[in-house]
């Protein structure tokens, strides 16, 4: 019969239409600004800089090694190294970024900066409501705007952050044990020889 296929199709549409009133499975949309779907843990959009402690600028993990700047595919990261040094999480004196800018209008959220960072200093945020009326200055984030606490990192990516923390704690313990051994060796040496020399601590992540 001509039109049978069409009637069959219309029945399917009617089933879906009526079903959307009763079945949650068929009603797949949400009213966005008022209703939101639960965030997915692995979501990424733009990078941020992790800091430990309370002071964002003092606790930045970044040591301005510029690997991410070099590896970034669209080259949206700009880093200026500092001239002085500050202690990092194991207490070793390190250079820090005097400037760390990311142009998020250029960033393509590929996560390669996160993958290549040996210091667990840069991670991906999940904040997506970033629209601004100033498309040049408003989308060029400096290090103050980019820094987020480790607690924030734990909140958005709990599994990943726990792994990172475990890894860092292990490194710190290793570095401390090494420093202790070096100090003991130095003390033993000092007892034997007049000129003590401190063994260099192992770089974290190397």
């Amino acid at each position: 019969m001509l039109g049978e296929g069409m009637l069959k199709g219309l029945a399917e549409t009617a089933k879906n239409f009526a079903g959307s009133f009763v079945s949650k499975e068929r009603l797949t949309t949400v009213q966005y600004p008022e209703e939101r779907i639960a965030p997915i843990e692995n979501t990424r959009d733009f990078p941020f800089l992790v800091y430990d402690g309370d002071d964002a600028m003092a606790g930045l993990r970044c040591v301005a090694c510029q690997i991410c700047e070099k590896e970034c595919p669209p080259k949206c990261i700009y880093i200026v190294k500092s001239t002085d040094k500050k202690p990092d999480f194991v207490g070793k004196m390190q250079i820090y970024p005097a400037r760390f800018d990311i142009d998020i209008s250029v960033c393509m959220s590929c996560q390669i900066c996160v993958e290549v960072c040996p210091f667990e200093a840069i991670k991906m945020d999940t904040e997506f409501e970033l629209s601004t009326t100033d498309r040049f200055g408003g989308l060029l984030y400096d290090r103050e705007q980019l820094s987020r606490s480790n607690e924030h990192y734990h909140k958005i990516h709990p599994t990943e952050a726990a792994e990172v923390d475990a890894r860092l704690a292990e490194e710190k313990a290793k570095a401390e044990a090494k420093a202790k051994a070096a100090a003991e060796a130095a003390a033993a040496k000092a007892a034997a020889a007049p000129a003590p020399k401190e063994a260099p601590a192992k770089e974290p992540g190397a």
Partner: peptide, 14 residues
């Protein structure tokens, strides 16, 4: 199956 019920036999599509 749903897609096919909707489309495959549809006279207009054919």
């Amino acid at each position: 199956d749903e897609t096919e019920a909707l489309l495959t036999g549809n006279e207009i599509l054919m």
